[in-house]
Design a protein around this nucleic acid. Structure first.
Lengths: 236, 236
DNA sequence: CGGGTTGGGAGAGCAGTGCTCTCGTTCGAG
DNA sequence: CTCGAACGAGAGCACTGCTCTCCCAACCCG
């Protein structure tokens, strides 16, 4: 697709991109709360009302930025994963987690935009779902590989959780044991807790040397989903 | 303190409280972003400029609400703890975690205010620190009791983390082994991750039956800091 | 009791915001 | 070539946080 297109359509995509770029710049500098449509327009040399030809509202602009942020984070996670051999699932796991943390520290406001407090009443449109899922899919893939090659050991579930664990595992990681699926979702949320606490200042005056702390926490998270240091597959 | 006070001082504290109450109402209904000084003043039948006699800026009002929220959450955690015997640390742990989750679900916007994305450039004033620490202190207390009565088993730390773990444990939970201190801080952040993911909608279409999921995750968190189901103290 | 001090409410006003509407212009498909 | 759609400019509305000035009433002290 993306045929030659007339000058008008070309201009439209270019201007749309320019608006998003400028908005992202303001977002990175001042945060979502201070992102002003008028300021973006001003910086681009256009008048504020013209901007509404491209984004029907401020929320729509933010939504576009959210999708981009999810994609950027997902891409970071994917490329981190690809740099470690499949046969070393624990190393893959930690690499991905550290990539997530690194991305968050490099793009704090964008991380806050996607994982921080959502605007009340604002429910993310379905458009964001695929982009948002990418990091989760990476983690699922790592654990699935480990499961197929080596086997995972996770303590059994309490009876009250069994049904729900089976349901959600079947839906998002079919083939994995339900204990692993449940542990995976929990680990995902906990990873987000670790990153968020550091990013949002909750570790100030508590944890000083964050990298080793995070590394260790993430390894223990991996243990929680059954990934163990030695014997990942022996025979890849 | 708090002597009879003249009518003027009395009115001041009353009006200050009324402003906070109305602000809290708006916060609960619409969220922090839409909390408007003018709307608060309007609702109270005063003019907006009068409100600045009580709070020098919108941020100061928000800070007051943040402290109140921390205190309310801390009180919820403390009272949940007190309802379970000291001799059952694991039950205490889960009770406190569930109290935190319950409070968060009951006061989503206030939870977002304290644990969500902070306004960029806004660093929480030192005033908030004691209130913010209460939940952490409760968790530390539970683990300390368990450690003194029964003993905890936590895997050893990697060398690179030992020094930092000793430092932070000495500072906020002296007496505990450094492995436990580090695990505790991590568990605290992870608890926040679990609650945040549920609250901010990240579990939508993923986890449906949240209570058992949370309960199980929290028990495994407790295992991570060394709390084990049986033998907590035998002899309280 | 009386006068000065001060705390606090009222109002106007400034600069900024998101968003709407109207009015020309210009591009491009039929 | 023409006519409709896309687009930019500008004015304007309702709202925001915050400041400044004015003025009254409560308070403290002699």
């Amino acid at each position: 697709m993306s045929t030659v297109k007339g000058a008008r359509a070309r201009a439209r995509t270019e201007i749309t991109a320019a608006i998003k770029d400028e908005a992202r710049r303001q977002l990175a500098k001042e945060g979502a709360a201070k992102l002003s449509l008028r300021a973006v327009a001003r910086e681009l040399g256009m008048v504020s009302s013209a901007l509404y030809r491209y984004f029907p509202s401020r929320d729509d602009l933010l939504t576009a930025l959210i999708i981009d942020a999810y994609d950027s984070l997902g891409a970071a996670a994917e490329s981190a994963q690809e740099e470690v051999a499949v046969a070393e699932p624990l190393a893959r796991w930690t690499a991905v987690c550290e990539a997530v943390r690194g991305w968050a520290l490099a793009h704090p406001h964008e991380y806050a935009l996607i994982y921080g407090s959502p605007v009340p009443g604002y429910t993310a449109p379905q458009t964001t779902v695929p982009a948002a899922a990418r990091v989760g899919l990476v983690l699922i893939g790592i654990v699935r590989d480990a499961h197929e090659h080596g086997g995972l050991t996770v303590p059994p579930l309490p009876a009250e959780l069994l049904g729900e664990a089976e349901r959600m595992t079947a839906e998002l990681a079919p083939g994995l044991p339900p204990e692993v699926g449940a542990a995976l979702v929990a680990a995902w949320a906990q990873l987000y807790g670790l990153v968020g606490f550091e990013l949002f200042g909750q570790f100030n005056r508590v944890v000083e040397d964050r990298e080793p702390f995070f590394r260790h926490a993430v390894v223990r998270l991996a243990h929680g989903v059954g990934l163990r240091p030695g014997l990942p597959g022996e025979r890849a």
